[in-house]
């Protein structure tokens, strides 16, 4: 049922694929963190032109499956003239999807900054830009780093969906290996264990980071 030599044989292939998974995750979370912040600030704008589309985007993206969004980006964009590599499409898909979640996280953090801080900035005649960059964000963002970290882990666990748009990542490499030898147990189990280990390690690191941040405040 379990062949250790076979498992050892396929490990190099799987680790190579793991690199793609990790790259996709890191790029995706970078995009989600930036875009999410933009969305969160947009939703707090006084102008309806900025608020409404941002809110609509977030609601819509959060209510629909990531897989379908990936298909949308991968298949629809070429029709509109923009052809993307599978990995690029995947990263954009992950980034857009998770930006909806990170924007909510940022919102909570921004709303957690006491009103008095905003008023002090106004009293000191700060521009809107300076208020955000010098006063609000430095207080809002550290508070939400743990929540953002959790979404990093969630995104990591969603990378297998990229296989549906032909990205050669960890899970479909396992599938491929399995279909060659008809031994699926070892590849998929190893992939599962790798995900579990990496999630657990990341969760621990995030908790450490959380404690470090709490200590500094």
């Amino acid at each position: 049922m379990w062949d250790w030599s076979y498992a050892a044989e396929i490990l190099p292939d799987l680790f190579r694929a793991l690199r793609v998974t990790v790259v996709a995750t890191l790029l995706g979370i970078a995009m989600a963190m930036v875009l999410g912040l933009v969305l969160a600030i947009g939703r707090r704008s006084r102008r309806r032109v900025a608020r409404a589309p941002a809110a609509a985007f977030v609601e819509f993206v959060r209510s629909t499956p990531l897989l379908v969004q990936l298909y949308f980006i991968f298949f629809v964009l070429p029709d509109l003239g923009l052809t993307l590599s599978p990995l690029t499409a995947g990263v954009i898909g992950l980034g857009l999807h998770y930006s909806a979640y990170t924007s909510e996280v940022y919102r909570a953090g921004i709303e957690g900054v006491p009103r008095g801080q905003w008023e002090a900035a106004t009293a000191l005649n700060f521009s809107a830009r300076r208020t955000w960059t010098s006063v609000v964000l430095p207080q809002a963002v550290p508070a939400v780093v743990p929540a953002l970290g959790n979404y990093l882990i969630a995104m990591f666990k969603d990378t297998p969906l990229l296989s549906a748009i032909t990205v050669v990542e960890l899970l479909n490499t396992a599938q491929e290996l399995g279909s060659q030898t008809f031994r699926y147990v070892e590849p998929i189990t190893i992939v599962g264990v790798l995900f579990l280990l990496l999630s657990l390690v990341s969760a621990l690191l995030i908790r450490r980071l959380e404690a470090r941040l709490a200590f500094n405040r």
């Binding site: 049922m1 666990k157 969603d158 990378t159 297998p160 969906l161 899970l171 396992a174 599938q175 399995g178 031994r183 699926y184 147990v185 998929i188 189990t189 992939v191 599962g192 995900f195 579990l196 999630s199 657990l200 969760a203």
Partner: peptide, 19 residues
């Protein structure tokens, strides 16, 4: 919670038959 749902699905569909 720590493993991907797609991995779990694939394991149930592809790996379980071996058992």
């Amino acid at each position: 919670r720590g493993t991907s749902m797609l991995v779990q699905l694939f394991w149930l569909f592809f790996a379980l038959p071996a058992f």
